[in-house]
Design a protein around this nucleic acid. Sequence first.
DNA 1: ATTATTTATTACTTTTTGTAAGTAAGTATA
DNA 2: TATACTTACTTACAAAAAGTAATAAATAAT
Lengths: 105, 105
Amino acid sequence: MSAQNICPRFEKATELLGKRWVALIVYDLMSGPRRFGEIDADLANLSGKMLAERLKELETEGIVKRDVYPETPVRIEYSLTEKGKALEPILGEITKWSSEWIELN
Amino acid sequence: MSAQNICPRFEKATELLGKRWVALIVYDLMSGPRRFGEIDADLANLSGKMLAERLKELETEGIVKRDVYPETPVRIEYSLTEKGKALEPILGEITKWSSEWIELN
DNA sequence: ATTATTTATTACTTTTTGTAAGTAAGTATA
DNA sequence: TATACTTACTTACAAAAAGTAATAAATAAT
């Protein structure tokens, strides 16, 4: 009989953060701006295709900013916006939880 | 040249929490034990198939506990373990972030 | 035995993700 | 001039995950 309504903002947030690779990409960008190839190298199992797709989505959501530097060869830097940086406490709590509860085999 | 290694515990945690529906199911269970049908009703777009699958996975991960009460009809209660309850600060930060940064159309 | 209720499971379709090769733009090198 | 190099993507196709709807299993009251 009881119906627990879930806050639509929370739901939207989990749709965003719950997409595969998103948390790891944001985590990677927390330490500062990074290039496509660097992120790709940091996240071993992430393919260029998915990285491109996720970066585009994150840009659309206003979480990531894309800057082009017409150098040789072209340098494209991805960085977090204010909205993206504001995710830090979430990642911090995930780090805490994982260090306490996740054991590696 | 620089390679940002991502903590394997963090990575494992995001694999878990980043799976579709997981955050919402855990959020729903935060308010106390719930039956299959109740969770299903709370999460409008979640199918019974996926709920069954996710609950099984969460049980395997030690986040959710399943209790059978042989009543009429049978009552099966899902609840959070200590490990599951420990996710609360993460959900709390997601709630905070979403209330500040997510706008509804 | 039949029925009711809740908790799943199965068969099938659609969507998402993975993999690997290929393209585009701009330089430098032969 | 041509080729090869670097970075940042795209594309085509295969595999895996998720969505949908019908069906089954479990239990006990009638």
